[in-house]
Design a protein around this nucleic acid. Structure first.
Length: 359
DNA sequence: CAGTCGTGGTT
DNA sequence: TAACCAAGACT
């Protein structure tokens, strides 16, 4: 480990002082002033927020967190919820495996741990949907354990502190080692949140605000003028475009033909409209025989690793229609497109704004 | 281990 | 506008 001319204890202390003055407010966070007074965070709320925050911005999580905790105040409440209600409440947040694992985890905690979260890294990482980052985050923030969080923020801060030019993800173990040497024994939770706040507000990806950084003096990349180039990353493959068809059928009574996607794979467990397979040249394969009408507009959506273009088809759903496939269903009365993933909401919007289609 | 898995905001 | 990015986990 390289020497900064400053001992780790002083560096973590400097950052904690900065955090005491600049900590951002979040619905799940206990501010440093209250923490110092002895107020402890609710492990359920820390867990829920950390799962929601995986690859997701604080701004996007806020409202979802408030709705979840209002509807399910305790982990036992969530454990008792119906799968479809949780998936519907998660709709729009993305990475839907998180919602399925969230429910699995809540039920394990409720059924096997008496409704109490494990208070150690090892106990936490054994739970569904909790990986190395989230286990360290919950252990430090909720249980005052000196565990080291390594997320995108910490990786960036460590790469710059040490002027590390080895590209991610290969450099991850080294960066983790750097980070662990700075993790303090006191206030580990506030420290973890402080490094992430630093990365989110000052040590930002594009134009870091080095001039006001509490770690300006020990930063090696700042010294070398390479801060804005770090961390380096291995280039990623270009996104291909896939094509498909989507079928929206509604009855005179206002019921829709819907499909529950299988638990595994893309949009797993989510309520959608039926579609064809997605690929280079998909075949038009409607869910039932009818006079389907093809709309001019297409649904365009970009997922993590491909672009999708769907041709929109509409038809009238017969009043006496009964689904023949297991995962097809006719909507309940309280159906709402808000319960569907974003790509499906786009299809609905196209349908609704298209004039003269009887939908 | 490299691929899979969403979405919205920023540049 | 297209690429990049965000408190990653799972296979």
């Amino acid at each position: 480990m390289r020497d900064f001319g400053i001992v780790p204890t002083e560096m973590s202390g400097t950052l904690l002082q900065w955090y005491d003055q600049h900590a951002r407010e979040m619905p799940w966070r206990v501010p440093p002033s209250e923490r110092l007074r002895g107020v402890a965070p609710d492990p359920y709320r820390i867990w829920l927020s950390e799962v929601m925050l995986q690859q997701t911005t604080v701004a996007a999580v806020r409202d979802y967190f408030m709705r979840f905790t209002t509807r399910w105040p305790k982990v036992t409440d969530l454990a008792a919820a119906a799968d479809e209600d949780v998936m519907a409440e998660w709709a729009g947040l993305g990475y839907y495996a998180r919602a399925r694992n969230l429910l699995k985890c809540a039920r394990v905690v409720a059924d096997d741990h008496g409704g109490v979260f494990p208070d150690s890294y090892d106990g936490l990482i054994a739970l569904p949907g909790i990986g190395p980052y989230t286990a360290a985050a919950i252990a430090s923030i909720a249980f005052d354990r000196s565990e080291t969080v390594l997320d995108g923020n910490v990786e960036r801060v460590m790469a710059r502190l040490h002027d590390c030019h080895e590209p991610l993800p290969g450099s991850k173990p080294v960066l983790k080692d750097y980070a662990s040497h700075l993790t303090p024994d006191t206030r580990p939770g506030d420290y973890a949140q402080a490094v992430m706040d630093l990365g989110a507000t000052i040590c930002t990806p594009k134009s870091p605000a080095c001039g006001i950084c509490p770690w300006l003096s020990p930063c090696q990349a700042r010294k070398s003028g390479t801060a804005s180039e770090l961390p380096k990353k291995t280039p990623k493959a270009p996104k291909p475009t896939r094509y498909g068809h989507i079928y929206l059928a509604r009855s005179e009574a206002g019921d829709w033909l819907l499909e529950r996607r299988p638990d595994k794979g893309l949009l797993g467990g989510m309520l959608c409209w039926p579609t064809s397979e997605w690929g280079d040249a998909p075949t038009d394969s409607p869910p039932f025989a009818a006079e389907w009408q093809e709309l001019g507009a297409e649904v365009r959506h970009t997922f993590t690793h491909f672009h999708l273009i769907l041709r929109v088809h509409t038809a009238k759903l017969p009043e006496d229609y009964h689904p023949d496939a297991p995962r097809l269903m006719v909507s309940r009365h309280q159906f709402d497109p808000k319960d569907m993933p974003t790509v499906m909401r786009k299809a609905f919007k196209i349908c609704r704004t298209d004039k003269g289609l009887g939908l």
